[in-house]
Design a protein around this nucleic acid. Structure first.
Length: 292
DNA sequence: GCGTCCAGGTCTACC
DNA sequence: GGTAGACCTGGACGC
């Protein structure tokens, strides 16, 4: 019998804006149901069990329907608060864009919260899967990771694999089974480091390091370059980096440069006035059509 | 059906 | 520190 958790949300929160904020809700173990305005996700209990859930909004609260007999309620609430960033204060963002008519919609639609996975490790692996490939291939790689290495529930739905599970297979498995290509060796090394405790991505959430230093630390992970590190920084709540990739650049050319290519320096200059929020401002600026 | 290009980049060797 | 070339894959496109 499914059990329902109800979680209060802040006034500045928008469920639909958050689940539409970027492509994460299209990556397993997320599954977005746009028509029903809800999102499925498979959580993982402390014992490693898969906990399928359906998350929706009702009257300013999140309803989380969990398809499991027993689970740690407090842990699951913490996961939901983390993923939907219920405790993040975006007042600073709204202040820096207050005089910008082009970005007025951000405040109106309570946008700016970027959906994230239940762990930084999961976001790190997914980010590496976004590099140097089409979005279609990213979805294939992440889907393979979840279905082939994740723990399954009784209903057959899988959670994102643990570092231990990812460390239990070799480079050939990543190449043939995950279709990860040259990223395969990166995943072997990353999973081993996290499983052995020599790398702890969860620490990045509350790191006391300056953002530039934290970015350097992130880039020590094979497969993480400037784009990936800055994307991860956004997911841990630091927005100084623009995380420019080919898609973001093309959108900037379209909206701000008459469709013509320009330098990254020109893009950076455009958003400099937004200070430490510039990485979130450029993302909002390019994704208005996603937020309905 | 086949070949080419490129996509939500990064690493390494070399200068 | 800057740059060229290699790297996997799969979908889109032209022929």
């Amino acid at each position: 019998m499914p059990k329902t958790l109800t979680i209060a949300t802040p006034k500045s929160f928008s469920f639909i804006s958050t689940i539409s904020s970027h492509g994460w809700s299209d990556l397993a173990p997320f599954r977005l149901d746009r028509e029903q305005r809800r999102v499925n996700y498979v959580f993982r209990g402390p014992d490693g069990s898969a906990l399928p859930a359906v998350i929706s909004e009702n009257g300013g609260k999140l309803n989380v329907v969990v398809d499991a007999v027993t689970f740690d309620k407090e842990l699951l609430v913490l996961d939901v608060r983390h993923m939907f960033r219920l405790d993040e204060d975006l007042t600073g963002l709204y202040e820096v864009i207050a005089d910008d008519p082009r970005l007025a919609w951000v405040v109106e639609r309570r946008a700016g919260r970027l959906l994230r996975s239940r762990s930084v490790f999961e976001d790190l692996v997914k980010t590496i899967c976004t590099t140097n490939c089409s979005w279609a291939l990213t979805k294939i790689m992440v889907s393979n990771l979840v279905s082939k290495l994740g723990t399954s529930s009784l209903g057959g739905e899988s959670a994102f694999p643990t570092a231990e599970a990812m460390a239990s297979v070799d480079v050939n498995f990543y190449r043939a089974g995950i279709r990860a290509g040259y990223r395969s060796q990166y995943f072997v090394e990353l999973a081993a480091a996290v499983a052995q405790g020599t790398l702890e991505p969860e620490d990045w959430l509350n790191s006391s390091l300056a953002t530039a230093e934290l970015k350097k630390q992130m880039k020590m992970v094979k497969g993480v370059g400037d784009y990936a590190a800055e994307n991860l920084l956004k997911l841990v709540g630091r927005y100084e980096g623009l995380a420019l990739d080919s898609w973001l650049r093309s959108q900037f050319y379209r909206y701000h440069n008459n469709g013509k290519k320009c330098s990254d320096e020109r893009i950076a200059g455009h958003y400099e006035k937004y200070g430490d929020w510039r990485g979130l401002v450029i993302w909002c600026d390019m994704t208005e059509k996603w937020i309905v």
